[in-house]
Design a protein around this nucleic acid. Structure first.
Lengths: 217, 217
DNA sequence: ACCTGAACACCGTTCAAGT
DNA sequence: ACCTGAACACCGTTCAAGT
């Protein structure tokens, strides 16, 4: 009879990530993770100090997988690429956004990413001052996050009398919801398009401020 | 001996909000709320179906407190005002941002707010198409949220040998962290400034697109 | 109509013990 | 050095009972 291979931190983190990918981060508990690893809950505490540290480790693992954009003379292309790399990496883990937002301190993986990102602006000729504010303006978008507060409603397909009600109370929403909808059936929004739309708007604005030698003083 | 006044939904919600303001939304539990109301946990379930509905109600109450900006011929001033109203209202409740982001459906209070917001763009002469994308670009900022992913580090005040290490590994971050710091002591960032900086950058971009009759086709 | 009490199926984590 | 078992102090929520 084979002895079960020893647990280690990497295995704990990898399993936790797989479990969160599958079930969502709400369903990820120390106890659930322990049974997944065929081990008693307290066995985990030899490899991570507590649940917060487990989440820290998961986040670092995911952030460590973001490729680095290379600067080839054009800050705008490089920054854009870096953001889209981050977006692609973090979108593979639906839980990552929420968990990252609950982290209290910056880990080395996070600082390394921010350093690389900041360096792109400086290399592109931005002042430290402008870089500072521009990074704030990007904020979550630097990680490829969209700050969708409420999901899009998708194609509206309600009983006629409710549609009537909606049309009375929410004429603007209805007008704007699906501006390209020629038929009733539709796909809702193209997240990637909306993301790049906003990103490019910001980059355009950054460029303008740079041109005019903007300063916060 | 006075009989304890009856519970009702308003009282439950108001107490829940006060408790969340005080302790944070993590510490808000049905059981904790029940003891606060001097009642047994299950008594709450006559007034809210479950915890999710409690949170829904809390969010609606807070959103209901956002004033409405009035349109006086200038979409930009109106939108800006509306965003800043939302920000002011939601900043009084530190838990609101996180809780709002976990709501699954749009309540009437939410729809009413989005309707009023959307109407400002349309009244200002934006096409439905542009309004749609512009609202997405605003996303969380429409509620006055900043998507800060990691807190600012505050003024760096470390032992000299660690500063040395930091300077080696994170030169760009150090350069950009406190661009205006002449002394070692500093205030960190002005959140309101950073928020308005990004907001105005977006509004400026919106205006440009409107001028040039932008269309997604 | 509203509140209670006991119970169930979960949590994260401690401590003392095993190998 | 690593894993276990029992226990503690919490959760949200059900069900059946009280007034």
């Amino acid at each position: 009879m084979q002895t079960r291979p020893r647990l280690n931190r990497e295995k704990v983190l990898a399993t936790a990530i797989a479990l969160a990918d599958e079930l969502g981060s709400d369903a990820l508990s120390m106890r659930r993770l322990a049974t997944e690893l065929d081990v008693v809950p307290m066995a985990l505490y030899k490899h991570v100090a507590n649940k917060e540290q487990l989440l820290d480790g998961m986040v670092d693992t995911v952030i460590g997988e973001i490729p680095r954009a290379v600067f080839e003379g054009e800050w705008r292309a490089a920054v854009r690429q870096q953001v889209l790399y981050a977006r692609a990496a973090l979108q593979r883990h639906a839980w990552a956004r929420r968990v990252i937002e609950t982290r209290v301190g910056k880990s080395l993986a996070v600082l390394d990413y921010i350093e690389a990102f900041t360096a792109l602006f400086l290399a592109g000729g931005f002042t430290a001052d402008l870089t500072h504010h521009v990074m704030h303006a990007l904020s979550g978008r630097m990680w490829g996050f969209t700050q969708e507060v409420f999901e899009d409603a998708g194609p509206v397909d309600l009983p006629p009398e409710m549609m009537q009600q909606m049309a009375m109370r929410y004429p603007s929403i209805l007008a704007v919801a699906h501006p390209h909808e020629d038929s009733v059936v539709g796909d809702g929004c193209d997240d990637q398009f909306e993301f790049e739309f906003a990103l490019d708007l910001l980059l355009e604005g950054f460029d303008r401020l740079k041109q005019q030698a903007w300063s916060s003083r």
